[in-house]
Design a protein around this nucleic acid. Structure first.
Lengths: 228, 228
DNA sequence: ACCTGAACACCGTTCAAGT
DNA sequence: ACCTGAACACCGTTCAAGT
């Protein structure tokens, strides 16, 4: 047999890539707060300090994770009407971070450090300029777009501590029954919406609505209105 | 002299209220990650374990901080057209959490646990029902409103670690000069907007634009359009 | 070049005890 | 009722050392 098949030890050689791999696995399995230098090290069968050869600090490691998500961005074609391009840019970002909701928060810091982040931002700023916004407004709206994408992805998910599936279910049910105890005369709408408040029935609709809402907001606020 | 004036020790008696006070001060001064059971204890001139008499866990303490922010909400009058009421609700929330940007993130978990949070949510759901949204959509939009308010407040601020004023300034300048090194042919809009991307010139405009954008999005997406 | 080992200054929290 | 003290199982990171 070739050594690459038997010698798993040497196959387990550390590198930024495999560390990030494991970090993403860990985050997916037990939440971002479980991604600890020490836990990551034991998961990689290595000393905590081994990681510090490949990353200067833990923050740099987390940046690596964020960059990995941004690597997956598929930059959309930059043609067509600006609202459609704006939507395409947001969809591309959302699609890239959706597979890793636990680490989506980290993308914020890397957006202007990563080629894909820069490309999407440039695209957004182009749309917003075309829409007639000042550069100051455009800048704020573009970062708002990023924040919206992140919030959409993270909001759909486990978030509340590293609890998993079943634990989460009882937690949600507690929250629901607490809401159901509210006085019906003062909270009619809330009581009618308890189930919808507590858990999201249709994830796809959730993302669509979120992006739709955002783009509609820009269109509605744009100084130069779009001709039909 | 009366004992209340001289005996500062007994004036320093612990209570949930004074612990939350100090926690908010600490967060304001050095960031949320500086709010540690042990640091908070030394700031209060007390043993770390003293806090555990008043709060079952650190999370409960942080909930206390969030509740404090929500206590400050001024519930707006629930009359007028729904887009105006929606805006009033968002403005009220933003106004309440703006004074404590560092702890704004914590509000998310408490919104449906706190009277003011419930009142604002009920109001928002009422607006959205009037606008013709399904309860499912309304629920998602209302939590999106909350997320937007929080993101607006936290986005304006120190956020990147507990760095303060001057440190932050050099950090921003680094980011800016990095952006200025980009190829001008590929990133024309980005280069034109570097200063606006890196720091927010007009905070008031930032909040207005954020809320405006959100409400406009709802108006633009609403099944029942508003009659002028 | 790549990793280990021991040590440091931190965390949140439990549990038994003091007053 | 309200707080202290010692202890436990964790953190991220530095620094010197191994191979």
């Amino acid at each position: 047999m070739s050594p690459t098949k038997t010698v798993t030890k040497s196959a387990n050689r550390l590198s930024r890539a495999v560390v990030v791999d494991r970090a993403l696995e860990l985050a997916a399995a037990e939440g971002l707060e479980a991604v600890t230098v020490r836990r990551l090290a034991t998961a990689l069968d290595v000393t905590p300090m081994a990681l510090y050869w490949h990353f200067r600090t833990k923050d740099e490691l987390l940046d690596g994770c964020a960059d990995r998500l941004l690597d997956g961005v598929e930059i959309p074609a930059d043609d067509g009407a600006w609202p459609e391009r704006m939507r395409a840019a947001m969809d591309a970002l959302v699609a890239a971070i959706r597979p890793h909701p636990q680490v989506a928060v980290l993308v914020d810091r890397r957006m202007l450090q990563h080629p894909s982040g820069l490309a999407l931002t440039e695209m957004a700023l182009g749309c917003l300029a075309e829409a007639g916004f000042s550069t100051a407004d455009a800048a704020q709206i573009s970062w708002h777009a990023l924040a919206t994408a992140i919030v959409l992805v993270t909001g759909d998910q486990v978030d509340d501590s590293g609890t998993q599936a079943d634990e989460r279910e009882v937690e949600l049910e507690q929250k629901a029954s607490l809401l159901r105890g509210l006085p019906p005369d003062r909270y009619p709408h809330l009581l009618a919406a308890v189930d919808d408040m507590v858990r999201c029935a249709d994830t796809e609709r959730f993302f669509d609505l979120g992006v739709e809402l955002f783009v509609a907001g820009i269109v509605g606020t744009a100084p130069k209105k779009r001709r039909s």
